[in-house]
Nucleic acid binder design. Structure first.
Length: 402
DNA sequence: TCTGGGGTCCTAGGACCC
DNA sequence: TCTGGGGTCCTAGGACCC
């Protein structure tokens, strides 16, 4: 029998994070790069090795500036397929370690090892073994944080990197957390950090000493509640397996030179082709098309439209993007465009049944029959969605069984 | 700091439904 | 006929993350 042994109050969540991922893959594959400052470019810094970070080189910095800070750095072009292959290899080590793995990005994941104590030993041992395994099987160094909650495990790995392991014991959580800078809190970026620091709030402990209402009025309801909870070390979120992407998109920076309408259209065509290919490969269809623009002064704009039915076909999506772009032409003419992107959201499984509903010429009886059919085939909770979407669209509703 | 590419989630007003 | 409360969806913008 396989029972899940939940030990309350134990640190059982691992946050595993590869160190300087892209740069480490380059150093792994080319011995000449080992021990040297490496920057993955070109254009902007996609990743920097720790040797380069020591000189102040940071992700998203222009490569020109990075070279000024660290003239001896080797700049190599990104090899995305190599990174994605390395990522797959690392995730297969994760999957061999625990059945409960939640990927966060190409280079980090949460693992819940709470049920593995009898089979694999205590979490700290599992974490140490995981680090050895990733190094042995994939040749990459990884940092692991271990704690009772996801948030704390992630903070722990952030503090421990590079090439570290840090366990936060349940009776030492607040001592660990409260002296840290507010920027360590998940969800505190540039804007929130400035708001907090302007009020003299510099550490997690400072946040914890504030009444929740004060944070809410400062930052809005969602951020306020969120930060208050994290500062008091409340984070009940479980590790979730099999989370699915909610949108698929692509974008392209255009540089400073002026673009003709024709060349803009060529870029858009390429984006739509890339995105729809990826959607079809993933077996997804989507309804909401978003056009993303960025201008000379770095302001942004988005335009979106929701289609009556989900699709992964190039033609309707391209037509929609072109239409949105045409609507935005006055804006583009005024501001000068530097980036164009598009994304498809509201994703559904391509296997979802596209049900036609007889709303348009309905006499009521037709509709009731259709809803009965949905109830019979897909379960009761699908009916509400069908009614909502069907009324709005008058046509087609994608439904997956309950 | 003159800034790439891929994402997630929240907010807020208006439309619409029960 | 007028009214209310509760809820979802759509659109646009913004903050944040790696």
């Amino acid at each position: 029998m396989c029972e899940h042994v939940f030990v309350p109050g134990q640190a059982t969540i691992l946050h595993a994070d590869l160190d300087a991922f892209y740069a480490s893959v380059e150093q792994r594959d080319d011995p000449k790069l080992r021990g040297r400052p490496v920057i993955v470019g070109p254009g902007v810094v996609l990743a920097a090795s720790y040797e380069a970070k020591a000189y102040g080189v940071r992700t998203a910095m222009g490569v020109t500036q990075a070279r000024r800070l660290c003239p001896q750095a080797v700049v190599v072009p990104a090899r995305i397929s190599a990174y994605s292959e390395a990522s797959k290899a690392v995730f297969s080590v994760f999957d061999d370690t625990s059945p409960l793995v939640e990927g966060l990005s190409i280079d980090e994941a949460f693992l819940d090892v709470g049920g593995l104590r009898r089979v694999s030993g205590p979490p700290a041992d599992i974490a140490a073994r995981l680090r050895r395994e990733v190094l042995a099987r994939v040749g990459l160094r990884i940092t692991v944080g271990v704690a009772r909650t996801k948030f704390l495990a992630k903070v722990a790995s952030g503090v421990a990197k590079p090439d570290g392991l840090l366990v936060v014991p349940p009776d030492g959580e607040l001592e660990f957390l409260h002296p840290l800078a507010v920027e360590r809190l998940w969800g505190v970026g540039r804007v929130t950090s400035e708001k907090l620091r302007a009020r003299g709030i510099a550490t997690v402990g400072d946040v914890a000493s504030l009444p929740e209402a004060a944070l809410v009025s400062m930052l809005g309801p969602a951020s306020g509640h969120h930060l208050h909870a994290l500062a008091h070390n409340r984070d009940p979120r479980p590790v979730v397996v099999g989370r699915r992407r909610r949108s698929i998109g692509s974008q392209s920076a255009l540089g400073r030179s002026r673009r003709s309408a024709e060349s803009l259209d060529a870029v858009v065509l390429g984006l739509v082709d890339r995105v729809t290919r990826r959607m079809r490969a993933a077996g997804r269809v989507g309804r909401t098309i978003t056009l993303r623009l960025r201008f000379d002064d770095f302001t942004r704009a988005t335009r979106s439209r929701t289609l009556p039915r989900a699709t992964a076909d190039t033609r309707p999506i391209l037509a929609t993007v072109r239409d949105l772009l045409a609507g935005a032409m006055p804006l583009i003419a005024r501001q000068g465009i530097t980036l164009v992107g598009m994304a498809v959201g509201n994703l559904d499984d391509a296997r979802a049944v596209q049900l036609p509903l007889p709303f348009e010429h309905s006499n009521g009886a037709d509709l009731d029959a259709a809803l009965d059919d949905i109830r019979r085939r897909f379960g009761n909770s699908s009916v509400n969605r069908a009614v909502q979407l069907g009324r709005r669209q008058g046509m087609t509703v994608p439904i997956l069984p309950d």
